[in-house]
């Protein structure tokens, strides 16, 4: 029984996608203005995935995230001001400036962390699923990662264990075709990465990662399955990142198969497409504007909060190594 987003969810779903979009645009601005230490991997273009998947989760579920994690955090309702502050290395950030873009964690939202190691978070999210099974809490753990991560051993090891023990885990492949500059099609001999599900004896699903409704439909089914004790699912979403691998990477290597590749994908903007769908469904333009304005106010507040926040004192470099 395929699950569908219902109309009363539209507004919330759109707000989340729009918030991710605006959040990442502001992060990009930080970078361009030289305000951001280090780098960030933007989620622009992939918003439908985190939004659609997380729309099917309960508040007490867990997610594991990757280096491209801002979208996952926004989708789980993480505080955008604390995220921004962390990205700027400020004391008021989620990790008091010790983690940065690639390590934003929000334990209170069940976010087990973005992760700087490709594939590093997959077994961790799987362990959270084991804990849920062990305690009988009916929580589900969702692991988000890229196409590139599916070639790490941790992916194979984790999915294999989750399958063997029917863990309540859902593995989300965000297939944006590239791992930095390397085209997945040049390093992996399968058209659909989800084909691997067969090898673990679990279901796999492929869906359009630019269509939040399609994302939700397969995710909701997999999550429900996991919650019912029937074990893990791998879902592959076909998607594309608007920008280079990270801020500062022009991403101009994505022309080897098709010089118009990027333009073609960008015509399928998930945020614009869903906005159109909402209008078509009879939701008034003014209602959408209102939601956008509310998001804009939150984002501006987050930016101001982050910019105005002080840096941590150097003494903080020595705390939180151990707990007493």
């Amino acid at each position: 029984m395929a699950k569908k987003l219902v109309k009363k969810q539209y507004q919330g779903v759109y707000e989340t996608m729009y918030k991710m979009r605006r959040f990442e645009e502001e992060v990009f601005e930080f970078y361009k203005k030289g305000m951001m230490p280090g780098l960030a991997h933007l989620y622009l273009g992939e918003e439908a995935i985190a939004t659609g998947v997380c729309a099917a989760l309960n508040d007490d579920d867990y997610i594991g995230s990757s280096h491209r994690g801002h979208g996952h955090l926004v989708a789980r309702g993480a505080n955008t001001g604390m995220m921004m502050a962390e990205i700027l290395g400020k004391k008021s950030g989620y990790s008091h400036g010790k983690g940065g873009s690639m390590h934003i964690m929000a334990m209170d939202k069940g976010i087990l962390g973005a992760n700087g190691i490709v594939g590093g978070e997959i077994p961790i999210a799987t362990g959270a699923a084991y804990a849920a099974l062990y305690r009988g809490t009916k929580q589900v753990s969702v692991s988000f990662f890229g196409d590139g991560a599916t070639n790490e051993g941790t992916f194979h090891e984790s999915v294999n264990m989750a399958a063997a023990w029917k863990l309540p885990c859902v593995y989300i492949i965000e297939n944006n075709l590239y791992g930095i500059s390397v085209d997945i099609r040049d390093v992996t001999n399968t058209n659909d990465l989800v084909d691997r599900a067969k090898g673990y004896g679990i279901p796999g699903a492929v869906a359009d990662g630019m269509d939040v409704e399609a994302v939700y439909a397969v995710a909701a089914e997999a999550i429900e399955r996991a919650r019912a004790g029937k074990g893990p699912t791998i879902i592959e979403y076909k998607t594309y990142r608007w920008q280079g691998h990270h801020v500062g990477d022009p991403g101009d290597y994505r022309v080897r198969r098709d010089t118009k590749e990027k333009e073609k994908w960008m015509k399928r903007c998930p945020v614009a497409a869903f906005r159109k769908k909402m209008l078509g469904s009879g939701i008034a333009e003014s209602a959408i504007r209102k939601a956008e304005n509310a998001v804009e106010a939150e984002i501006q507040e987050a930016v101001t909060f982050a910019v105005d926040s002080p840096y941590p004192d150097v003494s903080e470099a020595f705390t939180d190594v151990f707990t007493d």
């Binding site: 594991g64 961790i124 084991y130 804990a131 984790s158």
Partner: peptide, 25 residues
Amino acid sequence: LRVKDTPISEAGFVGMGVGMALTGL
């Protein structure tokens, strides 16, 4: 469930341990 024979996947099951510990076990 409490005393678990794992597959031969050291990165996998050590990482699972991390996830278990993060979530209260």
